[in-house]
Design a binder for these strands. Structure first.
Lengths: 359, 359
DNA sequence: CTGAAAGCGCTAACAA
DNA sequence: TTGTTAGCGCTTTCAG
């Protein structure tokens, strides 16, 4: 391995000068610089970035902590994050927590020890305010942190001096879904939510927004109308099968993510329940696949790229030690109407049709 | 930040002793070790892993280079790879090349500069033997490298002293698909392949295996029967639409990956072509989603986890400088028969039915 | 503008 | 068993 000293020797200068040439921060006489550049080229020298990291106190590595890389929504987000990171000269460590909070906390420490300069933590991988505390605590002199897509109320986080956050307004998005279903005339409505029991819901904002919007027009979402899943298609399939084999089956299902919604679509098909004529299905996330199932999936979502851009902008600002002017950013998703809620021409004139994007 | 010296001072020993306690490689008297451990606990000391990496000459970081993290197949593989890496104490840098060979090469260098201990390079991210050369060349004293899922012929790679490889036998898998279609009585068969032109095919092994198997029974796959895509659902949709609007449309389509197959399924639906009655569709990869579309997708695939385990075992062996007993491993995929090729009860008795796995 | 020197935090001979 | 010493490869004052 060729080091900076090798280059220095060859160019008859000291390592310091080579370093200056490379960094460009200090003026170097043209002639010497050329000699150094030449030596670099001849020896095919490339700086050892670990050593540089140690000396500079920053590693130029960011980390992305997310619940599950195999969930297309997170994968699509990871792709954007990664591109932005690399565009800014950072590499990206990725770690999935499999929705395990304990594991997530451990990774957080580990990544800090790794001297990552910044950490983007996706909601679902960790949970609740106590973790926030933990993060903040461990953050003294640690990596910059941005929370992305956390379900918890931003204002509550803000009150606790949490790290900056950026994410969707989940409650608003779910309300769009609810209103869409109501306009289509549905009143026997069920939800499939990521969580295990009523007191242990992961997609809290989405469920709250949905039930609140229904309650607003007097439609109640009973405990019995809520089924629980784990964000996988499999769990969505199971939950929907249970719902559709009840004596009084729902005419509409809102799943709090697209994978579960896709599972629900499959379950409906297998039960011989026609979508959208006998059952409307809405998802959340707007993953690419939703546009390629038939009927295509109506869903709630916001541009993943924009979200990634905002989150990374915050993170990079944090890494550079800049003040965050906006500490909490919330993007309003919209409803992407497709065939799983209405067949063209069959919806009442005041309801949205496939192709519409609300609002 | 608390350093090893802080701990040493507090425990009235030298940094070296602290280091010994931590590594456990050198015997330390019980009493002193307790003092050190206590100091570590009191100061909440955690070693700076970058510094350790510099001193030890290894970073405990692996990197995964893949074409596209948003492609579920790669995401599912990444999940397994990541878990294995962490289970062995390694972190994982992930980088997608977006099928850009030039970019892939650049990342390769960059990751080497980052002192990653090992590199898992997925096929599609780079291409051809020339890159292999480049890798090998840059590998003198560089990170250990394993190639995974490369389409190129393993024997050819082997001849050039390539890095170890592990992957599927793509040609074999495609042949399974071909035979399945033939048994079902299809003879107007088309393929949607990742590539741009006949001389610029990415999924070379899959196409070759498919057309060879057809040719074996006298069915020719003309240039006109092959459409090109880029592994996305969108491209599969476009290609299938083109195929299905031809005057003489095919009765079966083999897409060289699942996303394209899923796009083809959507295209058939939109063209009013019933699957599987009027059109059979087969994909490749066996992504999770394929089981949740309706009709469910018949596809070729092998257990992703096993593949990841084999690849990582090779890589870790390489990192540890061990000799590779088996340098090239090829896993035989099987055909997972689902509804997109046969409706239950309608296929001839000698053909595979939904639920079958071949061979 | 360039060189000398110190040090980032940790490890690994070797001595004591 | 523990301490001393010398780096890993690079950056960064500070002199010259």
């Amino acid at each position: 391995m060729t080091t900076i000293s090798d280059v220095a020797r060859r160019a008859s200068v000291t390592p310091a000068t080579v370093s200056n040439v490379i960094s460009g921060k200090v003026r170097v006489r043209e002639a010497t610089r050329d000699r150094v550049l030449m030596a670099i080229a001849e020896l095919d020298y490339r700086p050892n970035l670990v050593a540089r990291g140690l000396a500079r106190g920053r590693s130029e590595v960011l980390a992305l902590l997310l619940p599950d890389i195999a969930n297309p929504y997170h994968a699509e987000l990871a792709r954007e994050v990664e591109n932005i990171a690399y565009a800014h000269g950072y590499r990206l460590l990725v770690r999935a927590t499999a929705y395990d909070v304990g594991a997530g906390r451990a990774y957080l420490r580990d990544l800090a020890d790794r001297q990552v300069d910044g950490l983007l933590v996706m909601g679902g991988g960790l949970a609740g305010a106590d973790v926030c505390e933990g993060i903040v605590q461990g953050t003294e002199q640690g990596p910059a942190i941005v929370l992305c897509n956390w379900e918890e109320d931003v204002t509550r986080l803000a009150a606790e001096e949490s790290p900056p956050t950026v994410g969707l307004d989940f409650a608003y998005g779910a309300a769009l879904a609810a209103r869409h279903l109501l306009r289509l005339g549905h009143h026997r409505i069920a939800a499939i939510v990521h969580g295990t029991t009523p007191d242990c819901v992961v997609h809290t904002g989405r469920l709250r927004g949905f039930s609140t919007a229904l309650a607003g027009v007097g439609v109640r979402l009973d405990d019995g109308d809520v089924c629980y899943g784990d964000s996988s298609s499999e769990s969505g399939y199971a939950a929907a099968t249970a719902l559709l084999t009840r004596p009084e089956r729902p005419t509409a299902i809102f799943a709090t993510n697209d994978l579960m919604a896709l599972g629900a679509l499959a379950a409906a098909y297998d039960q011989g329940v026609r979508v959208p004529d006998e059952l409307a299905v809405i998802g959340f996330d707007n993953i690419a696949m939703g546009a390629y199932v038939r009927p295509a999936l109506t869903t709630v979502g916001a541009p993943t790229r924009d979200l990634a851009i905002e989150a990374m902008a915050m993170l990079l600002r944090g890494v550079d030690g800049q003040e965050q002017r906006v500490r909490h950013l919330s993007v309003r998703p919209s409803l992407i109407v497709r065939g799983s809620t209405t067949s063209p021409g069959r919806a009442p004139s005041w309801a949205a049709r496939p192709g519409d994007v609300l609002p």
